[in-house]
Nucleic acid binder design. Structure first.
Length: 586
DNA sequence: GCCGTTTTCGGCCCGACTGTTTTCAGTCG
């Protein structure tokens, strides 16, 4: 078993123990253990074999023993017995908003409710309202929560969440009673998928702002409305939470609701270590339970909060407890890449394969955005479903692009298309075009589009064979994942990154919100090996150019700087690097 | 179940909102 599978099981044990009514700190210990494994950047098998599990904070004797069993035998009797002791459907009940472990436990023990159908039946018969601690209102809310659960998945692609959040933020900003406002939460941290949208506002008239917020046209349902916060469902079925605080409290509330939860816990602990107390309202001297403003250690901005805790400012994207505290203490946080530094995208499609824009339309759109270049990398022949190009069509396209570039040069315009291909990595590990054709193209992206079910070792071999071809500049979407849709295929990502480091091959950060692949968690490893990143739109339509901004947000989560990213280079320097890569000096 | 330069025992982040209660438990973030 690999670390993700083991982490999933620890996570599930934690939940099962909660349903059993175990000591909450014990259940949290399992969840902490799962998180510790997810954050591991090397092979779990290796760590276990070398007896170094104990070096990982959060893993004590009991967890070390269980993890070792799972890794070496693939089984854990403790887990299997625990799982067998409760009906399988109980876990899905926890996905209903408003139902937590205590209520699920009561429903199961008192009514024998063990799955969604039984829960629905019990609500409709009015049995749930009769239970102690429940009532009519709770029963109605459960029914509503179930309807919501059926209709919408609970997680959302980043671009969809942004499309709803940005107009709402603009509306809040324009309200006269709003002093400062911002998005917070996973959206502000540029997570690859979003649970809900968070807004933080400072105002002297919170009720006015909350009233205004819940009446926005995008709001479909009001879930809760109080004096300091409101929760609503907005278009796309996304939950949006608004918190309103005083302006003095704003930086603390913004930091708190931006999270991540793990980052906040570490911040609170730093405060406690300094005899202070940090919460969403301020930084208080001593740990006294009071909101007396006299005790407020005022901070005008988030920056000042970090300073008071002995840290350099941590950009939101880095707030994942992923090494930012060690770096912020020493002033070693990187200057992160900005999306405005990008000059173009090196993996895109046109009407020649499955894209929606002609070459001329691409030129017009991308030039209009102020970009310097745009590589046209249509699919190769094996991607039949995507109208992949035969070699002769590729050569025709090269001619067409040269023609356009000559025209642009004649007009004195500072923009060029680059010729290229997204060539399929075939099951054998060979590429879908021969070396002669690849050498005629300026940009070669190699990607897997078939044989997703190959065993890990075989998939790893295929991809490594592809990046060893000197004609390949860029490895496309390394894991093939489609967020919220399709799991990544099985591949040893570290081994592939090592091969890219050895061959000077660049790795794409595919900026499509369905992909964000390579995952941000692996970029620190990749750059430590000297691998360069290309933030690519994989554009199929004009509006996909906007993915440059979203992809940069995710790149920032991977601690990437301007120096790590190829497509910040001006055209001339980019062409030199493309040639250098091929000559083997890259 | 984890952890320790006050502790090998007794802590473990903490506040708002809802609904069911009449002072609080559960859930959520």
């Amino acid at each position: 078993m690999n670390k993700d599978q083991v982490a999933d099981i620890l996570q599930e044990i934690g939940i099962l123990l909660e349903l059993k009514g175990e000591n909450p700190f014990k259940t949290r210990a399992y969840q902490n253990g799962a998180r510790a494994l997810e954050g591991l950047t090397e092979s779990l098998e290796k760590v276990v074999a070398e007896g170094r599990l104990g070096d990982i904070p959060g893993l004590g004797d009991a967890l070390q023993q269980k993890i070792t069993l799972l890794v070496t035998t693939g089984r854990l009797e403790y887990y299997e017995e625990l799982k067998a002791s409760l009906p399988a459907g109980l876990l899905t009940l926890l996905e209903i908003p408003g139902l937590g472990p205590k209520k699920v436990k009561a429903l199961y023990e008192k009514l024998g409710v063990s799955n969604l159908e039984l829960l629905k039946a019990a609500c409709e018969k009015g049995q749930v309202a009769e239970l102690a601690g429940f009532g009519k209102k709770t029963q109605d809310n459960i029914l509503q929560g179930m309807a919501f659960h059926e209709k919408y998945a609970s997680r959302h692609h980043l671009h969809l969440a942004l499309a709803v959040a940005e107009p709402l933020l603009e509306a809040l900003r324009n309200h006269p009673a709003v002093t400062r406002c911002s998005t917070a939460g996973s959206l502000r941290r540029s997570k690859e998928v979003i649970g809900d949208i968070d807004f933080v506002v400072s105002s002297r008239k919170p009720n006015e702002v909350i009233d205004y917020f819940v009446k926005q046209p995008a709001v479909l349902t009001i879930l809760a409305q109080g004096d300091t916060k409101a929760s609503v469902i907005v278009e796309q079925g996304i939950q949006a939470d608004l918190r309103v605080v005083s302006d003095a409290e704003f930086p603390f509330a913004l930091a708190y609701f931006t999270g991540s939860k793990e980052h906040n816990i570490a911040m609170r602990q730093r405060a406690i270590a300094r005899g202070l107390r940090l919460n969403e309202y301020g930084l208080f001297r001593s740990t006294e339970e009071t909101r007396d403003p006299a005790l407020l250690d005022s901070c005008a901005t988030e920056d000042e909060i970090y300073q008071k805790l002995g840290l350099h400012y941590v950009p939101p994207e880095l707030r994942e407890d992923h090494g930012e505290f060690a770096a912020a203490e020493k002033g070693l946080l990187p200057r992160l890449i900005e999306w405005t530094e990008l000059k173009g995208s090196l993996h895109n499609h046109s009407t020649w394969s499955d894209g929606r824009q002609t070459l001329d339309e691409i030129v017009e759109t991308m030039m209009g955005l102020g970009l310097s270049y745009w590589a046209v990398t249509d699919h190769s022949q094996a991607s039949f479903q995507a109208h992949g190009l035969r070699p002769e069509r590729v050569r025709e396209q090269i001619v067409a692009i040269r023609e356009i570039n000559r025209r642009l040069e004649g007009e004195g315009v500072d923009f060029r298309l680059l010729t290229g291909t997204e060539v399929d990595i075939l099951a054998s590990g060979e590429l879908d075009f021969d070396d002669e054709l690849l050498a005629e193209l300026e940009v070669v992206v190699a990607s897997v589009h078939s044989g997703f079910t190959a065993p890990e070792a075989e998939m790893t071999r295929r991809i490594i064979a592809a990046v060893e071809n000197p004609n390949v500049h860029i490895l496309g979407h390394l894991t093939g994942r489609l967020l919220l849709e399709r799991e990544p295929y099985k591949v040893d990502q570290h081994a592939v990154i090592d091969a890219c480091a050895a061959t000077g091959t660049w790795i794409e950060l595919n900026a499509s919100p369905s992909r964000f692949d390579l995952d941000w968690r692996l970029w620190q490893y990749a750059t430590s090996k000297g691998v360069k990143c290309v933030i690519n739109c994989d554009a199929h339509r004009a509006e996909h150019a906007g993915y440059l901004r979203l992809g940069t947000g995710v790149a920032r989560k991977g601690w990437l700087t301007k120096q790590d990213v190829i497509n910040v280079l001006p055209l001339g320097e980019l062409r030199r690097q493309l040639a250098k890569k091929r000559s083997g000096e890259g």
